[in-house]
Design a protein around this nucleic acid. Sequence first.
DNA 1: CCGTAGACCTGTGTGC
DNA 2: TGCACACAGGTCTACG
Length: 272
Amino acid sequence: MPELPEVETIVNDLRPFLEGRRIVRVQVWDPLLLRFPGQEDFSRRLLGRVVTGLARRGKYIVISLSGGLTWLVHLRMTGRLLTALAEGERHQRAQLCLDDGTSLWYCDLRRFGDMWAFWAGEEEHLGGYVNLGPEPLSADFNWDWLRKVLAGRKAPVKALLLDQEVVAGLGNIYVDEALFRAGIYPGSPGGNITETQCRVLVTAVKDVISSAICGRGTTFRDYRSGLGTAGQYQGQLQVYGRAGEPCLECGTTLEKFRAAGRTTVHCPNCQK
DNA sequence: CCGTAGACCTGTGTGC
DNA sequence: TGCACACAGGTCTACG
């Protein structure tokens, strides 16, 4: 579910709620949730610690705790981290009680979400987190980097943009949106993307991600912010979810096909 | 190494 | 109403 703008919104929502709070009780009802360490050790590690900071890296939520412990959360498709349970909220998988009497809840319909609690030196347990590529809004994500990582590749440019080692935080929605803005056909082999197109694409990615952060993310179905509210950016999507509707630029009917195993929407006239 | 299909889960929407 | 099937903001792994 959540891509970079959604995770950014959640982190910003949770920061004032969590920073400075001590964790006084840890309950995990779904063992699938914990990647490292196991249930008992996870609770033992978090218990009694104070939250010293919240950050985002790619689609990961990074929570710093006293004593140098890092609590890492990935929401995958339908995970939610909430300051309060809404009426009718289901699929509660974990609850953390805080020293001011409030609780942080983790809910997840499809149960794909993952958590880790690790100290420095335990990076081998962290999966893709350690190999993340540059942040799309950083100076490290630029046309020269993109040209380098696309060079010689035959996979569709869309598949490569979804690769978190190429750029961290893009998902199905914002890749389609960025390729539309850049006028690039999502199925083009990565190696066919010219230098000029790399420049335009980098700008398009930065623009769409910035705008979506301003809009507090996109709610198509499941996404909720840390406060349980829906995003606003779905009203500004140009292609995602609009197959069969007219292109907002030229009026041509938008088409969908399968790329990188994902439904992909594009304008056959605007994107070559 | 590269690229793609399938697996992991649970639910919703659609068509017969 | 029931049932089968496709599909869903994401990664992993297995295989050719």
